[in-house]
């Protein structure tokens, strides 16, 4: 790792101020950023740890029924505290990494990083979540902009994520067996006004919505409804863990499983 300083502010305002420094970077749970730093793929001058800010932590239900999760809330907390309100989301959080990783990793960190194989982006996109920062609110559809790329500005902190709670939902992940990231993960969420399907792990462009499946499932919410659809392997990732064809194949299989489980 290159050398850097660490600051641990206790309020969002102090964190935002600290991030104003040149080459400063926010540090959530660090479960992705620290390995990245070890590989010298990032060279911040200062890390601003968000783990000591109480107002970033917690799970609650808003007046409109949406589930609101503080940006600094760990996966373990979401797994435990969202279970009653949004079981599919809680199950997703409980399936990330392993227990020690879930005790550190945070939802804000995951969404800010936008790893193409991360789980949370699928939930946020399929739920039509709102990403709330210290500066503004963004719809998930506008937020994700490709591999490791989001609409966040420099120094902007995710303070909260608001999930409209669907009638039915499920997330199915085919794990890359070594890392337990998603080789292909599909989140299906059925709302009164239609079904949303988001796919992570598969595409070279990062998390995406499978609109054909959404249309088919909005008309008929059953696994059979997507049976006739096909997913092109064009633009799918190929690596040591799976070919583009395999990933394209898995998108459909995981979608059917998610619908069946929802």
């Amino acid at each position: 790792m290159y050398a850097f300083d660490i600051e641990r502010p206790t309020t969002i305002a102090d964190a935002v101020a600290a991030l104003g420094a040149e080459d400063a970077q926010a540090l959530g749970g660090g479960q992705t950023l620290i390995p990245t730093l070890k590989q010298r793929l990032a060279m911040p001058s200062k890390l601003v740890s968000l783990t000591a800010i109480p107002e970033l932590k917690g799970v609650c239900v808003a007046d409109d029924g949406a589930l609101c999760i503080g940006g600094g809330t760990t996966h373990a907390t979401v797994a435990a505290q969202a279970a009653a309100h949004y079981p599919a989301l809680a199950a997703l959080a409980g399936g990330i990494g392993d227990p020690a990783v879930r005790n550190r990793g945070t939802i804000g960190g995951s969404l800010a990083n936008n790893d193409p194989a991360a789980c949370y982006p699928a939930a946020a996109l399929a739920s039509g979540a709102t990403i709330v920062t210290n500066a503004r609110q963004m719809a998930a559809d506008d937020y994700f902009q490709g591999l490791f790329t989001t609409a966040l500005d420099e120094g902007e902190i995710i303070t909260e994520v608001r999930f409209p709670v669907p009638d039915r939902a499920a997330y199915m992940k085919f794990q890359q067996p070594a890392s337990r990231f998603a080789l292909t993960g599909v989140f299906v969420a059925k709302y009164a006004d239609g079904v949303r399907v988001a796919v992570t792990g598969a595409s070279e462009g990062g998390v995406f919505r499978w609109t054909e499946a959404e249309a088919a499932l909005s008309a008929d919410f059953s696994a059979d409804a997507v049976a006739g659809l096909s997913v092109s392997s064009n633009g799918m990732m190929g690596d040591v863990h799976g070919t583009p064809d395999y990933r394209a194949h898995l998108v459909k299989v995981m979608t059917k499983r998610a619908v069946a489980a929802a």
């Binding site: 067996p177 070594a178 040591v240 863990h241």
Partner: peptide
Amino acid sequence: ELVWDDKGRLRTHAPSTYKI
């Protein structure tokens, strides 16, 4: 699974890519 690319680089050199 050990995987080398066509340049001879071992692509599975961590437990995050090599499944024990």
